Simulated scan of single mutants.
Amino acid sequence: MNKNTLTINIDKSSPIPIYYQVASSIRDRITNHEWEVNEKIPSEAQLTEEYGISRVTLRKSLDALHAEGIIKKEQGKGVFVQKNPQPMLHDFSLPLTLSSRMQENGISVTPLVITSHISEPVPYINKILELDEKEPLAYIKRVFILNNKPIGLNNSWLSSKKVPKITENRLIDNHLSLTLANVYNLKPKSIENSIQSIIPDAADMKTLNIHYLSPATLIRSTSYLDDETPLEYSMTIWLGDRVKFNLNITND
């Protein structure tokens, strides 16, 4: 790639802080292999010229990337790429298949359970799951971690009758799909997804440790068993700079 000096547009009227925009841009450039691991990135003078910003703002951006472990600073030598922050690739496969593919590609996403309990019925969710309107729901909330950083926040609801005591016992390695398959012999055959760009609310931003107006994608999913009975309804927020979506469409 041509590494000559260029001007990169930063929206200085945006409510998203300039340093955050610059850090995201540099992260993307590393992800796209403009600079490889252990390669020195341009000097502060060149980067401030490219982005049209002050050195104070640039150093704040570099400090954020350094905290993520993406770059490293060597006294008297400059700033070097420490790792390529490749995003998680989400291809809308069934959960067990997606998890297997990520492991094959050396990507290890760690789910952590935040809360798990039996909740009161939620009318629209009970309707989606084709349950009696008075049936309680098993509710599980988890955060997904990649490279020690939160990348997603998942809320799942299931019929409390189909998965007895699931909220009382630990999930297998905190994996819901693995627990459903191995403990309850429930394996979804299909899944329906809807996708929406969102701004997470304050509580979710705090859990995900992100800044106001950070890009995020909400995926609402309903999984179905062999007999087309709904199994699980979920809402998952994926961070836009840490997750890449891949959707293949063929013409039959």
Rank of each mutant, 00 (worst) to 15 (best):
G76M: 11
R101E: 10
E74G: 09
Q103F: 08
Q82S: 15
L96C: 04
M102Q: 10
Q86M: 13
Q103I: 07
D91E: 14
P111E: 02
M102R: 06
S116V: 02
S100G: 02
I71K: 03
T97A: 08
P85L: 12
H66I: 11
F92G: 03
L62A: 02
L65A: 05
S108W: 07
L98P: 00
P95M: 10
V81F: 13
L98N: 05
D91G: 10
V79M: 12
Q82G: 14
Q86L: 15
T97M: 05
I70E: 06
N105K: 05
A64R: 08
K83C: 12
K73N: 13
F92M: 07
I107K: 03
Q103S: 04
L94E: 08
E74V: 14
S116H: 04
L98D: 07
Q82T: 11
S93D: 14
L96S: 08
T97S: 10
V109F: 02
P95Y: 09
S99E: 12
L65F: 05
E120Q: 13
V113G: 01
P95A: 08
P87S: 11
V79P: 08
D91R: 15
P95E: 04
H117T: 04
P85S: 14
D63K: 14
L96G: 04
L96F: 03
S93G: 10
P85F: 14
L112D: 01
D63I: 08
S108P: 00
R101T: 05
E104K: 09
P85D: 12
L89W: 05
L112C: 00
L62D: 02
P87T: 07
S99C: 03
F80T: 11
